[in-house]
Design a protein around this nucleic acid. Structure first.
Lengths: 153, 153
DNA sequence: TATTGTTATACTCTATAACTATA
DNA sequence: TATAGTTATAGAGTATAACAATA
């Protein structure tokens, strides 16, 4: 029995390296924010919310690329941690809004510093132009696949 | 009450873009390999095993950057799917070995094609030099943080 | 009927630690 | 005692679908 064409190797795929580095960066960041009692997904949730006075769960879901169910669960945790308040909209009683409380806002500031330090520890030894290159390539791929609700350059 | 320094934005961090793109690539690949009945982690497991006649679970754990417990669970699934066989070592009865069965080897070939196509769909619209740049940057970061048991260039 | 949000279910991945059997 | 591997537990992320309340 003849074996068919040899399979391409793991490290022949950019997706493989992307996943390896991304997982390491996220794991490292997860350990950092754990000291503040939150997860990476919670950080993103809080940081998005920081820019708005209040946001509907469905809007957060869109901005974070998550389902409403997932947002609901995240919101539960953050409410029970006392970082976020959930309110019903009196005009349309189906609609809710989520708002950061002051201690939540203060936490975002500390978490952002951890994010800065984490990025620095992984990408700090690249030259400025290299960091710029990497960012541009990633943003282009994200844009090409409609991943971002975030500004592209 | 004065608010402290404004927190850096999500998209100011390379880690953010890395995670966004990596998650999309992995999610897309997960859907592709699902048609062959396996997960992304199972693909990596199978592909590593393909290059060896047999491998100890602990060696697989080292090569995949996972714990032995995680490997044990993965191996269970792959054995029950009939892709891998687990054998005890008669010389040292503590030691086991894992081996791909022929249908498992054939599956790896098909999965590799899916990985090729997935990579192409995400990075195919980059110029050759850009793909090379991206790969080099990722491999350098991986090497700088001791992530890879894989060849670096 | 359609929409907003929540809840339930299920599975993968990850990490830690306890455990079994060998050595 | 140390080692190889398995098993147990628990939390987090993800996805789908059922569900309640409201429009």
């Amino acid at each position: 029995m003849v074996e068919p064409a040899p399979p391409s190797e793991l490290h022949a795929h950019l997706g493989y390296w992307l996943r390896m580095v991304s997982n390491a960066v996220s794991r490292s960041f997860a350990r950092k924010v754990e000291s503040e009692g939150v997860t990476v997904a919670e950080w993103v949730f809080l940081r998005v919310l920081y820019d708005f006075e209040r946001l509907a769960p469905s809007e957060l879901a869109d901005r974070m690329g998550m389902t409403r169910g997932a947002i609901s669960k995240l919101a539960d945790r953050l409410v029970s941690k006392g970082l976020v308040v959930r309110r019903a909209n009196p005009r349309d009683k189906r609609a809710h809004t989520l708002t950061l409380v002051p201690s939540g806002r203060a936490l975002v500031v500390r978490l952002a510093q951890l994010a800065d330090r984490n990025d620095e520890s992984f990408f700090g030894n690249l030259a400025i132009e290299e960091r710029e290159q990497l960012g541009q390539l990633l943003r282009r791929i994200a844009a090409a696949h409609g991943l971002a609700t975030m500004p592209i350059d």
